[in-house]
Design a protein around this nucleic acid. Sequence first.
RNA 1: GAGCCGCUAGCUCAGCUGGUAGAGCACCGCCCUUUUAAGGCGGGCGUCCUGGGUUCGAAUCCCAGGCGGCUCACCA
Length: 493
Amino acid sequence: MEEINELIEQRKKKLADLRASGIDPYYESFQAADYARALLDKYNELDHDALESLNRSSSVAGRILAMRNFGKLAFVHISDASDEKIQLCFARDILQDRFPIIKKFDVGDIVGVSGRLFKTKTGELTVEVQDFKIVSKSLRPLPEKWHGLTDVETRYRQRYVDLIVNPAVKKTFAMRSKILKAIRDFLELRGFIEVETPMMHPIAGGAAAKPFKTFHNALELDLYLRIAPELYLKRLLVGGYDKIFEINKNFRNEGISTKHNPEFTMIEFYIAYKNYQYLMGFTEELICEAAMRSVGTLKFKYGEYDIDLTPPWQRLTFFGALEEKGLPEAVARDPEKSVQWARQNGINIPKDLPKGKPIFDEIFSELVEPELIQPTFITDYPVEISPLAKRKKDNPALVDRFELFVVGRELANAFTELNDPLDQRERFMQQAEARRQGDEEAQSMDEDFLRALEYGMPPAAGEGIGIDRLVMLLTDSHSIRDVILFPQLKTEQ
RNA sequence: GAGCCGCUAGCUCAGCUGGUAGAGCACCGCCCUUUUAAGGCGGGCGUCCUGGGUUCGAAUCCCAGGCGGCUCACCA
């Protein structure tokens, strides 16, 4: 991306000038003893005289974000990896013949300096620079200091610039890191081990979604990027693990929106000998732990909403929630009556809805989901839309399953795992039938998975949580792109 | 995939019913030893997203396309 640009040319000229005077503007290392944040935390409280008597020397390295030059004195703000800004003072009296080098500085350059700490007349903690190096010369101008970078396209495409100039972005991703750490710690403390299963699947199973397809040349094999790790994790249950989890990407070849990125991060975890009832309490604890260790509280704002994660969370059955909306289960289960009911109640039913797909699922998403603002478990899903979950003992038309909703969005999906290989085979057959009737997202028969179940899988509860959505909730982010460092975009030009 | 909105200097934006490109910041030059969006004086900077069309003349109007945002659809 070679561009002729006056500003870049000016900077290249400065770079050449530096080299001509024997200065290397691209160092291979710099030993900074201090972080800006640590210096401010420790010394900002001291007054001018107290700091003088300490005579504290320091060294910091970071990117120049602002410069104010007075001819024989210059103030420079740098920001370092501690995400804090510290002021540097370059004075001709101190730097003597090296002082003119600062004429070659630009906002964006990375410098390393050492010098004594002092307080300016206005009381700002400042490094009085005694020695300095330009460790990396920047050739491109940064966005201006006042309005910063707001163009969302540039922010996503050039996330590196976004991170330099928008501190809130770093905060979000620091939160993301804390949330993931909290989840890992929570599970590891309870005896789980983290595993990695294939991202490339010969059969894309474990969820209802369209996969990305790819090809392995040497094996001459069609492969799919995984849409879910579920069927592999359950194979591990067969193998004898009792508490496992995997945190990794899934890939779904579907539309992009504020809530969907083609690759997104899921955690799936499985506990042998437990059921979905157990997982509800477990989920409350897990998510509260993540919230406490990132947000620091269970009560916080998400946009207009005041969210309260304090357990226990509301629990409603799938058909119970529909009945509250005036749709009796008997009507919901009747394909024709339910369509009629939907039309009468102004529910938008897609015209191209595949034949095998039940209408109540549509009605539920349209009528119930948007109102589930506070955390709510929806339980006892119909078996037709849950091909991998165990049937309820007292009602084989339903399964032992829940989904967790917050701010109208699905955050988690969990169930008691189907471990009856014969029932599982039947469910796959039904899915195959749905596929024949036009449901592209119906699941495919996976003979190896069935073979594994035939060896015997312990009863188990399993759950998946959309990490990106959890991070959105806890960071008050309203687009999934704000919690993914490099969200998917079309290529430039 | 559909609808609506946007795209002008490095950044943030103005530019009316068509008359030939602007501001602030950033940048360059000079002055300035305590600034905090430093200040003063002077200066430069454009594929007006792209390609067609209408017109004497298009950043502006029309058509097509690109990229992005939002909403809807699909989904997590």
